[in-house]
Computed example of a mutant assay.
Amino acid sequence: MFNLNLFKNIGVPLYLIIYLIFPNSAITQNLKVDFISNLENSLNGRDFDFIKKNFRNDDSQNISRQFSKIINDFPESRWKIKRLKSNIPNKEILRIKVSGEKIVNGEIYILESNFDYLFSMVNGKIDEGIIKNLFTTIRNDNKEIDISFKIPDRVLTGSKYDIDVILNKPLEEVIIAGAIKPHQINSFFEQEILLEPLASGGIYKITRAPSKPGVQIWSGIIAHPKGIITFTKTIDIVDEI
């Protein structure tokens, strides 16, 4: 039987799995294929000058700071960007994937993050950028844990909805631990998640959306004998679907 005492009183800092959410980021007036390619190359090449030239001053400072955190935690991280068709007037959408890995105490941690980036282009500068549909995992189990995440991308204001994180294989006598909690953008740096035993083979939660439109963020962790998985998911809270 797995010894749950190994996880007693463990608190997991949230900054590592949420720093990709930077508010009020921002892109230029004529979005061209070469611009997208240059943006991707600048991120992969750690070219901060490109960011400073193509983002507004306040946004470029914020993005550079957040980007530095990613590079510091995952020095070999790679970015892939492609343009999506937008049905929103005066808005563009990029689909962005970030992947990377690092070794901590002999363990390999794998980062995978996917999100859509919705933005306007004002005076040749990236402006009014919003992260949508972000889902990030960091795990050290070499993907041996068969896990499913059933978390919606958007829900109606004030409505009830389910959050299910399911371990698909029978646990038998194995004990796992985990937890999940909500928080707001820019409020996560000092927060921790305290693990609890999960007798049901996953996390199953019914919650209610806020009464006003916006973004709700959920972060959690699953601790299993084969490894640890941390995750972050954003949910759009909307007036209509």
Rank of each mutant, 00 (worst) to 15 (best):
L4N: 01
L6H: 11
L6R: 12
K8T: 08
K8P: 01
N9Y: 13
I10T: 09
I10Q: 10
V12C: 05
V12L: 11
V12D: 01
L14Y: 06
Y15H: 09
Y15V: 08
L16D: 07
L16H: 06
Y19L: 09
Y19I: 04
Y19E: 10
F22M: 07
P23N: 08
S25L: 14
S25R: 06
S25H: 08
A26F: 09
I27C: 09
T28G: 11
N30H: 13
K32R: 14
D34H: 13
D34G: 01
F35M: 07
I36T: 10
S37Q: 15
E40S: 13
S42G: 05
S42V: 07
G45P: 02
D49R: 10
F50C: 02
F50D: 01
I51N: 02
K52Q: 11
K53L: 10
K53E: 12
N57H: 11
N57P: 00
Q61V: 05
Q61N: 13
Q61C: 03
N62Q: 12
R65L: 09
Q66N: 11
F67D: 00
S68P: 00
S68V: 02
P75W: 09
W79Q: 03
I81R: 02
K85D: 11
S86Q: 03
E92H: 13
L94Y: 08
I96E: 05
I96S: 06
I96Q: 07
K97S: 14
K97R: 13
S99H: 08
S99Q: 14
I103D: 09
I103V: 15
G106N: 13
G106E: 11
G106V: 06
Y109M: 09
L111E: 05
L111H: 07
E112R: 15
F115A: 04
D116P: 05
D116G: 03
D116K: 12
Y117W: 15
L118T: 02
M121C: 11
K125G: 03
I126E: 05
G129F: 04
I131Q: 04
K132I: 08
N133D: 15
N133M: 04
R139K: 14
R139V: 09
N140E: 13
N140F: 15
N142Q: 15
S148V: 10
K150W: 04
K150I: 09
V155D: 00
S159T: 07
D164K: 13
D164P: 00
L167R: 03
P170L: 04
L171M: 12
E172A: 12
I175R: 12
I175K: 14
A177V: 05
A177R: 06
G178A: 07
A179I: 01
P182I: 00
H183C: 07
Q184D: 12
Q184N: 12
Q184H: 11
N186A: 11
F188G: 03
F189Y: 13
I193W: 05
L194I: 11
L195R: 05
G201S: 08
G202K: 02
I203S: 01
I203F: 04
I206R: 12
T207V: 14
S211R: 10
P213S: 02
P213Y: 03
I217D: 01
S219P: 02
I222M: 04
I222C: 02
P225Y: 06
G227W: 04
I228H: 03
I228S: 01
I229Y: 03
F231G: 00
T234D: 02
I235Y: 01
